[in-house]
């Protein structure tokens, strides 16, 4: 029982980690909580299903197409909503982010309808549904293994991009000092757009994986997932990419254990309570920098 809960929690946690990375990267670069990131995650799932049902693309191609579309959405979001407000007070950008989140969510509601849909099972390769491993009470499906593999390899890829490439160096420079980075010849707006694209692509994958895992998708799915992923980012220390991964896993496991052993009614409450507790008692998170307002 415990092992099964741990496995389920780990699956969920890796997905949270994929979303949390998007929050934390954007926060690291422009110090903005991109509330609309949860909506990008939702759009990813819907794009994928639309590509499968309307265009008839195979599963893996549809995932790639959805990633590309979500990256474009992320870039558009930055250009339309956030770029004009770079010099405005923080509050203005935060309010815009909330506004964009609500806007996108309702746009999806209008386009795809408010009812929850199943993921088209025909398109999902059959072997993903089979059990990969059965040991006593514990079972592990190929789908869960697929989620592990995708999440971990994407995280590794992200780690390489951030630490080993020129643009990753530029991102890190930007998160330390924007002005100095600009003076060194870094194209600030390009790097910010790239960060949005990267985060959005990972968010889209997370959305698709969740909708396959639970076999359901609906326009408001980005709302709770977004907040939980943000909680994961805070837990790990916002602005820190490895922190987001650790935070996501911890939160996913905590949620699965909380739902299994405390009360399943408060499943979502676990995430919020963890988040509030972390912010109150250790606001810098597990791996983050200090965030106490100096003023």
């Amino acid at each position: 029982m415990l092992e099964q809960q741990l496995i389920n929690g780990l699956t969920l946690g890796l997905i949270y980690a994929l979303i949390a990375v998007g929050y934390t990267m954007v926060y690291g670069v422009i110090q903005l909580i991109n509330f609309a990131h949860g909506e990008i995650y939702m759009l990813g799932a819907f794009f994928c299903v639309t590509f499968i049902t309307a265009v008839g693309l195979p599963f893996y191609v549809a995932i790639c197409m959805a990633m590309i579309c979500c990256s474009l959405c992320g870039i558009l979001l930055d250009i339309i909503a956030y770029r004009p407000l770079r010099k405005a007070p923080r509050l203005a950008a935060l309010i815009t982010a909330i506004g964009m989140s609500i806007f996108l969510q309702n746009l999806a509601l209008i386009i795809w309808g408010s009812r929850s849909k199943p993921f088209p099972q025909m398109a999902v390769p059959g072997y993903l549904k089979e059990k990969a491993l059965v040991m006593g009470d514990i079972s592990l499906t190929w789908l869960q293994l697929f989620i592990f593999a995708v999440a971990i390899s994407m995280m590794f890829g992200l780690f390489l991009i951030i630490n080993k490439t020129r643009i990753g160096t530029a991102m890190r420079a930007l998160s330390q000092n924007k002005t100095a980075a600009a003076l060194m010849g870094i194209n600030v707006n390009f790097v910010i757009s790239f960060t949005f694209a990267l985060g959005s692509a990972m968010g889209a994958v997370a959305g698709i994986l969740v909708s396959v895992y639970y076999n359901t998708l609906y326009p408001t799915m980005g709302y709770t997932a977004g907040v939980k992923a943000f909680a994961a980012a805070v837990l790990g220390g916002i602005g820190s990419v490895p922190g987001a991964m650790v935070g996501g896993i911890v939160l996913g496991v905590a949620e699965a254990l909380g739902a299994g052993y405390v009360s399943s009614l408060y499943r979502d409450g676990v995430a919020y309570a963890v988040m509030i507790a972390v912010i109150i008692f250790r606001p810098s998170g597990i791996l983050g920098r200090s965030v106490i307002d100096k003023a």
Binding site: Y27, I33, L91, L94, V234, M275, P283, D293
Partner: peptide, 9 residues
């Protein structure tokens, strides 16, 4: 804390 944390709490 900074305003962002307050918003999310």
């Amino acid at each position: 804390l900074t305003g962002d944390y307050f918003a999310i709490v």
